[in-house]
């Protein structure tokens, strides 16, 4: 069974004027079909305003479909009684680390979710310890989040979600506000959670280097899913990506450029330096 499934999902942002009359309707999602299996690492790509964050908020039952439905672990998000269990099963990490940390010291923040779920005190402490250790933030448990770096704050936020024992974590541009070191930290953490803890990860981003490790990539534009495939399949469609306000990692770009200029033996959708160097050596190195 899919952990997350959307069918026919459409969503309108409705704006009202002062009298409460509808002044504009903005379709943010249009007929989105998505099925994520347990244990997968999914990446959703898209430019600003492509609807990817709106989609994320649907999976966590923060927004509800205008049409169609979203199911998390077989439960519809539109039904009131499912909300808490859905939010526990599909945790969410947001973009701005400062605006999602509720506690004034690290351990209190991580305990916030379990407290809301009604876990008994001893259980909360166990979860806090376990998830802070998983994210490598245990030694900072007594610190004020204010004094941490962006990458560390974001790992605290992830720990806060992990402490709720979710099956799936949706990360809505978790690296957009971080420096390169912080970005690496967060992506490493996401991959580890997927590999070791088998938590399903849905990573939303517009940094192309971050999606290389995903099992499947969805590319969104104007509220619709435009492309689906493995990172390799997606990255071999460079021109289409550029039309969707995106690009490919530098290595992929270099490989595509070389191919365009006559090195036909280079395969499409090169992902790593290693692949590019090997294919060049294999086909073009004369000894």
């Amino acid at each position: 069974m899919s952990i997350v499934e959307t069918h026919n999902l459409s969503f309108d942002y409705i704006r009202r004027d002062e009298e409460g009359n509808v002044s504009s309707i903005n379709r943010a999602l249009n007929d989105v079909e998505l099925a994520v299996e347990k244990g997968e690492f999914i990446a959703i790509l898209g430019g600003n305003g492509s609807g990817k964050s709106t989609l994320a908020k649907h999976i966590n039952a923060i927004l509800y479909p205008t049409e169609g439905y979203v199911m998390v672990d077989g439960k519809k998000t539109s039904e009131e009684e499912n909300i808490l269990s859905i939010r526990q099963k599909a945790g969410m990490v947001f973009q701005n680390p400062d605006n999602q940390i509720i506690g004034s010291i690290v351990e209190e923040d991580v305990g916030f979710g379990p407290e809301n779920m009604g876990v008994e005190t001893k259980g909360i402490w166990e979860r806090v310890e376990e998830s802070l250790k998983t994210l490598g933030m245990w030694e900072y448990r007594k610190h004020s989040p204010m004094r941490l770096s962006g990458g560390q704050k974001q790992r605290v936020a992830i720990a806060g979600v992990v402490a709720m024992h979710p099956e799936c974590i949706i990360m809505d541009e978790p690296t957009a506000m971080l420096d390169p070191a912080g970005r690496k930290d967060v992506i490493r953490a996401a991959r580890a959670l997927n590999d070791v803890e088998h938590i399903t990860i849905i990573l939303i981003t517009h940094y192309m280097e971050e999606v290389i490790y995903a099992n499947r990539v969805f590319v969104m534009e104007k509220g619709e899913i435009r492309m689906t495939g493995t990172p390799r399949e997606i990255f071999s469609r460079l021109e289409e990506l550029e039309e969707l306000r995106l690009t490919v990692p530098q290595t992929t770009k270099l490989a595509a450029e070389l191919k365009k200029r006559g090195l036909k033996e280079i395969p499409d959708g090169i992902l790593t330096d290693e692949e590019l160097i090997q294919s060049l050596c294999r086909s073009y190195l004369t000894m």
């Binding site: 770009k253 060049l280 073009y284």
Partner: peptide
């Protein structure tokens, strides 16, 4: 990133310019 690729290509035997810094 490309600078590293160029260095590795040089080591592999390609006569490339390792000071290249753009695609």
């Amino acid at each position: 990133g490309v600078t590293y690729i160029m260095r590795r290509l040089k080591r592999a035997g390609f006569d490339v310019d390792t000071t290249a810094i753009t695609v």
